[in-house]
Design a protein around this nucleic acid. Structure first.
Lengths: 244, 244
DNA sequence: GAGCATTTGTCCGTATGTATT
DNA sequence: CAATACATACGGACAAATGCT
């Protein structure tokens, strides 16, 4: 089939990997070179090929490990909550608040939030983890009036969705979102713990209160494409999943 | 900043490339090696980095060329037409019919098309081009009753949307879609003219007639991520674009 | 904390294969 | 056919990050 050695090796490894649990160690470059009788370059190319296929993650000094990618499903009918969405995919969500500031709403965000520029806002920066692996960097904007003591509440509760429901007595629903894949700016790349340029999801989102229609939150989330497959469903029609 | 030579070179080239027209030739590996005083390995790594950033395309034997990526915007309010969507992004669409068969509707597709398995269908395979570059491989399913002579009509008109409007006297609107990024199966990769594993969009879509609500078409489109950035908008709220 | 082995990351030089022009 | 340019591959070397002693 393939005339190139490293693709043969990659295909063979892909089959072996297939059943393994995420986090399982894959043979190192020197091990593969010895096993298949090739140089380190070819062994390395094979592992890099698997990395491009999102089947493994490679960490300098540590090794190469079987990767897991979850489906992050966005639709009108699902709650706009990171924790809920990750749990729905069968994985364990965790998030870490990097900062909560009170800042006036910048003009560029005013349209999303349906408020005048200058309105007092909470600006929350979070990093989110899936099964303890860094996956997402989120910037969230929430009007101070919606949850005055948001900064205090976030010390004890991780989920912003939950805090809004409890403190703000509202029911956030996803009113709008725009999802795409891009190469993020270097500062976001660093925030996500990747050096080289890898594809990353950018999801811009606006949440409203189900009852009043009031805008509760606007956010921009950068998510590693090797950690999640974002699936956007345009309408609420639900079709049975097909097995690939 | 960066301690690695090839990233320095890549960053420098990225700036130089920035203003160039798509298709412009980029310096070859040996040229870069000489210019920056590095080996061919580092020069090559720099060009591969630019390829990962989707800034260039590389063709064996030909060279490295500045790439263009268009926004393919999908939303409820936009027509489900490949030609229209590509034109809206300011590029030139073209498509080539690979095959039109009459086949009974397979069970896996029945739900999407709201018809019983076995219903007579047209199955159309198309490859689509943006500015004469192969970008998309589409499989489309259309009930024979909707457009009995579809196979004949497609000899003269490229756009299926147009054919349905004229022959079928219907107005297709996007009723549902599911968009994600994946590594396609080898046969699709070959159909898209890529050898190594590159990220590709998979957009599954269902179109209905605006008037009657009848399902007109279901399709699966694989699109090269270096050719388009698919942007899915969940509701019809339109916000002003922000300049990155 | 220091030291060490392991593993991936970067880079050199060189050679050959293969596709394009 | 020849020249060019990218793809693959070898061998060797050192750097940098990780994990363990």
């Amino acid at each position: 089939m393939t005339s190139t050695r490293y693709l043969e090796i990659a295909d063979k490894l892909a089959v072996e990997i297939d059943g393994c649990r995420p986090g399982t160690r894959v043979a190192s470059e020197p091990e593969l070179a010895a096993r298949f009788g090739v140089g380190r370059a070819a062994a390395r190319a094979a592992l890099q090929e698997l990395e491009r296929r999102l089947l493994v993650r490679r960490v300098q000094g540590a090794g190469t490990f079987v990767n897991r990618r979850i489906d992050y499903v966005i639709s009108h009918s699902r709650p706009p909550s990171w924790h809920t969405t990750v749990e729905a995919a069968g994985a364990t969500p965790r998030s870490h608040i990097k900062s909560v500031e009170r800042v006036p709403l910048p003009a560029g965000r005013a349209a999303h939030l349906d408020r005048a520029a200058g309105t007092p806002m909470h600006r929350v920066i979070r990093t989110c983890y899936i099964d303890d692996l860094l996956a997402t960097w989120i910037e969230e904007w929430i009007p101070v009036e919606v949850a005055p003591d948001l900064d205090l509440a976030l010390h004890s509760v991780e989920s912003i969705d939950l805090v809004l429901r409890q403190m703000g007595r509202v029911s956030p629903v996803r009113a709008w979102c725009r999802a795409s894949v891009d190469i993020p700016p270097p500062e976001v790349l660093r925030g996500l713990g990747v050096e080289a340029s890898v594809p990353v999801w950018l999801v811009d989102s606006v949440s409203r209160d189900e009852g009043t229609g009031q805008v509760l939150m606007a956010s921009s989330a950068w998510t590693r494409a090797d950690a999640v497959r974002v699936v956007v469903e345009l309408s609420d029609t639900v079709y049975p999943e097909e097995n690939a």
